[in-house]
Amino acid sequence: MISRVETTATDSWSGVTSQAIALQSALPARWRPRARFMANLSIINAFRLLPLAANVNTLMVDDSTTPPKMLGWNFWENSNMDGALAAGADNVLLAGDFTQFCIVDRVGTTVEFIPHVSGSNGRPKGQRGWYAYKRTGSDVLVPDAFRLLNVTVDREPPLSARLVEPRSDRGFLMP
């Protein structure tokens, strides 16, 4: 099982910088040379707005490279991760060495000929077809090579639902 770094958020993103740094620091030194961050695009964009919204002096996400970097590590998008902070626990940021994550395609693909294709009503459509399938799997090889930031929000509304409003003197402000 992947180790979790547990944090609690209340009503602002001001502590997010320290949470991301704590997550990076929690990864054992053995896995840091090839480590990457991964998050949903909504969370990545929240990190992009953080300097403007929370009066943080440093950029969390450096978009001058492809892929972007956060705290010196590449930052990848994963649309299957939590994209909003709502009441309860959310797994919003993953750090780790992805050479220790394996995706395997089982050898062999099965292809079957279908002489009479049926429609949604079960009646023949007067067509022929092919049906192909294969097996694919994935797993973490070394669970110690990853750390997951689990943020628990204490109250409503969700942090991600807060609007970033323009402010004349310094860019943006989160209410």
Results as ranks from 00 to 15, higher is better:
91 N>V: 00
60 M>C: 06
104 V>A: 14
7 T>L: 01
2 I>E: 05
154 D>I: 04
28 P>S: 11
85 L>Q: 03
88 G>Q: 04
82 D>R: 05
84 A>F: 10
53 A>C: 11
64 S>F: 04
69 K>Y: 00
149 L>K: 01
138 S>G: 15
155 R>E: 14
25 S>A: 10
35 A>F: 03
3 S>A: 09
166 P>F: 11
111 V>N: 05
119 G>Y: 01
52 L>S: 13
174 M>Q: 10
46 A>T: 06
153 V>Y: 03
160 S>N: 10
106 R>T: 13
36 R>Q: 13
175 P>M: 10
70 M>D: 02
57 N>H: 09
144 D>V: 10
116 H>P: 01
55 N>Q: 11
66 T>R: 11
142 V>K: 12
155 R>V: 12
147 R>W: 02
10 T>A: 10
72 G>I: 05
80 N>P: 00
129 G>C: 07
131 Y>T: 12
142 V>E: 14
138 S>N: 15
109 T>Y: 08
27 L>A: 04
62 D>I: 03
5 V>R: 02
14 S>Y: 07
24 Q>L: 07
38 M>N: 00
135 R>I: 13
96 G>Q: 03
72 G>N: 04
63 D>Q: 10
27 L>V: 07
107 V>Y: 09
42 S>K: 08
151 V>E: 02
136 T>R: 15
128 R>S: 15
133 Y>L: 12
107 V>L: 13
10 T>L: 09
73 W>H: 08
33 P>V: 13
172 F>S: 03
166 P>G: 04
174 M>L: 13
108 G>P: 04
146 F>K: 05
104 V>T: 15
18 S>D: 07
3 S>I: 02
87 A>T: 08
79 S>Y: 01
19 Q>N: 04
174 M>W: 08
69 K>N: 06
20 A>Y: 02
61 V>D: 05
68 P>L: 12
9 A>M: 05
87 A>G: 07
